[in-house]
Design a protein around this nucleic acid. Sequence first.
RNA 1: GUCCCCAUCGUCCAGAGGCCUAGGAUCUAGCCCUUUCAAGGCUAAGACACGGGUUCGAAUCCCGUUGGGGACGCCA
Length: 395
Amino acid sequence: MAETDADAARFEREGRTAVVRLRMPREGACRFDDLVRGPVAFDWALEQDHVIQRPDGSHLYHLASAVDDHDFGITHVIRAVEHLSNTPRQIFIADGLGYERPHYAHLPYVAAPGGSEKLSKRKLGKYMKQAEFRRVYDHASAILTALGEEASPERFNPVMVEFYRDVGYRPEALVNYLLLLGWSLDDRTEDFTREQMVAHFSLERVNRSAASFDPQKLMAFEERRMGALPAGEKDEAVAPFLQRLGLLGAEPTPEERARLRAVVAAAGDRIKVAGDVVHYPEFFQEDSAFAYDDKAFAKRLAAPGAADRLRRFRPVLETVEPFQADMLDAALHRFVEAEELKIGQVIHAVRVAVTGKAVGFGLFEALEILGRASTLARIDRALAAAGDRADRGES
RNA sequence: GUCCCCAUCGUCCAGAGGCCUAGGAUCUAGCCCUUUCAAGGCUAAGACACGGGUUCGAAUCCCGUUGGGGACGCCA
């Protein structure tokens, strides 16, 4: 800025163009009542003469926002504390233009996991070093990987809402968690519907201190929400993930719907976010197509005697009638008693044979869902594979 | 550097002078249940930053210290 007329003349000769600055008050203070922070005062003397228009004629944020807020009839300006120090100049502009002042509410910023620094998407690397944060990222990343997508931290960042949407967190869980970050109704109410949030929320009860983001607590809200979801809605939430894997038709047939319903019910609370279904593809794949987990196969089927016990148990499965979880359960117990075996000596082999995995939901529910024909076909495939591996000296 | 803000379990909140031997949630640990993995049940551990005031009485009010953070653009 030109300090003297001589400077101004020289600048003009040099072809420099001018900006428009707003002359601010030199003394006194700007006072206003912030809905969350109470009475606030800023000395005018500390304020710069802010630029409000560039040489090209375009206007800057402070002017634009004051005018926009007025034009849009904004009554409450609710934003993060970072903007608190911007308020006096915006008030000055609004007052100067003869606008009615809006109410202001400055919310605390959200702090980084385990810290008090402002949460920033650029500091992901730092947050990743923290075990709990890492766990949430890894869980989501596994889902994305199963979907055949790459989980790059730039795009897939737990600091951004898209992250949670992409892996199937319930929106209401995220909103509920965020609601309680810096606000509470009382000392125990945790779960709110949208209607209750609207009815109870008040800026007066918003905290003045920053709250740090705890991804594990978010997960706790998510689990509760998912657990409370009616079966039909849970199926709907989960379906798109299977469709992306090509395991479910765009317009599921009645049979597909029934299978989906059964798997989701059996998986129960193991499906914490909708995307967790990707861990149960074997129920939607051909008997000859699903994959075996190598470790599980080696431990449960290739181990000495395992295949033999499975072979002896097979006839039992041929005759159980009806082919239902409780009947299967009873049949296995009778079998192990007669053979003087422990239940674990058979059950794990069956699980790996029909699902390919060492872990999963209740085995008898799994068998019922697959049905007799698939169960037997899968056991035969597993026995053949175990034989092959034994022939190749892999047992 | 200049201005400003914040301060209760690891984390998120409750607490607006006596209801506090500080409550809930989450996390952690142990036990129970159990075919795996989850879940569930029970129990436990865990905090008023420090120092001065004010008061019969302070987590709550005041002052200071310490600590943590934010804002300082011809960005939004």
